[in-house]
Amino acid sequence: MLSISQDTHLQYSQDTTQLSITIHNKSTVAIPVKVATATLDFKSVSHAASDSQPELPSAAPLTATDDASLFLSPSSSIVLQPTCQHTEDLKIITSTTQQYNGRIQIQVLPVNYPALDSVSITHSFGIYLIDQMKKSIVHPPQQHQQEEGHEWTYQGQFLREMFDMDPVMALEQGMFVCLESSDGTKVLCRIDGDNGDSVKVCFFGANKDLVRSLVHELDSLDV
C-alpha cells in the first residue's frame, strides 16, 4: 500500500524567508514511486476590504544548484525509493509583509505497478508575519524605555521560538527585540517583566496596523 506524506518548515535566515519542503515515501512494501507533477501556489489572507490585491509571493532557489526541482520552472519529476525522501529548500519572495496561505499539490505514480492507481496529495500551510521578519536584539534610544504600546503576556519558550532565540537564553527586563520587515518597517518588542514561565512584553512601532496585526497573530499562535 502506498504511504506518501509531505511537510513544510519555514524560518527567516540570511535575510530571507526560507521554505523547506519534504516529501516522504513511507510505503511499507518495496514500491518506488514517481512524483510526476508538483505545484506550489499562494493566496493572500486579507482581514480588511481593499480594492487592490497585493502581489502574491514567488519562490526561487535558495542557493545555486543543478539538482532537479519539483516546484520551480522548468519542473522535473523524481523517483522515490521506499523509506526515502526528497527535500527542497526555497526562498519565498514577498513584496508586502502580510499573511499568506500556501498550498502544495503533488501527483504520485507507482513505478512498475500498473494495477495501483496514482495518488494525489495536497498540503496547506501558512506564511505568517513573524516568518517574514528579521529578528535582532537591539539597544534603542532611552525614550523607548517608557513608550506605550500593546502589552501582552506570553510563555518564555514561545517567545524564544518566535524570535529565533537560543532556547535557554534569558529574557531580561529591559531587553528589546527588533522585528524588521523586508521594506525596512520595524516593530520593537520590549521585555517588561519575567514571572517564571510568563513574560510580560510591550510591542510598538510607527506602523500601528502592522503592530496590531503582529500582536493578534502571536496571540493566535500561542496555544
Rank of each mutant, 00 (worst) to 15 (best):
S95Y: 05
L109K: 14
A48T: 12
T97N: 08
G184Y: 05
T153S: 14
V138C: 07
F125L: 05
G149T: 04
I137M: 08
C189E: 01
G156M: 04
P61M: 12
F71T: 00
L2R: 01
D66H: 06
Y113V: 14
S220N: 10
S27V: 05
M175I: 15
E55H: 10
I191H: 02
R160I: 05
S75L: 05
Y128D: 07
H24A: 01
D89S: 13
E55V: 14
M162V: 05
Q6Y: 04
D41W: 14
V29Y: 11
P57T: 08
S118F: 11
T94C: 14
L179A: 04
L19V: 01
S118M: 13
K34G: 03
T63H: 09
L10P: 03
Q142G: 05
V119A: 00
K43I: 09
E217I: 07
T22N: 09
G126A: 14
C178W: 02
K26G: 10
S213G: 04
V168F: 12
T94D: 07
T87D: 04
D197Y: 06
L188N: 03
D192L: 11
Q6K: 03
D192A: 08
I92Q: 01
V201P: 06
G149Q: 08
S20T: 15
D197H: 08
F176S: 03
Q155M: 02
S120R: 15
F204A: 01
F204H: 01
G174F: 05
T39F: 12
P82E: 12
H150G: 08
Q85G: 04
Q14V: 10
T39C: 02
L90M: 07
V108H: 02
Y113M: 12
S27M: 05
C84Y: 08
K34F: 03
Q145E: 15
T97S: 12
K208P: 00
G196A: 09
I93N: 14
R212E: 13
I130Y: 04
N207D: 15
S5E: 11
P114K: 10
S46N: 15
N207L: 11
T97L: 09
H123M: 05
S13V: 11
K186H: 11
L188R: 00
S124V: 09
Q18I: 15
T37H: 09
C189F: 00
I191W: 00
P74V: 08
I78N: 00
E180N: 06
Q142E: 13
T28C: 08
P32R: 07
S182W: 00
D164H: 08
I127D: 00
M162N: 00
V201M: 06
P167E: 13
L19Y: 02
F71L: 07
E217C: 12
Q11R: 14
M1W: 09
C84T: 12
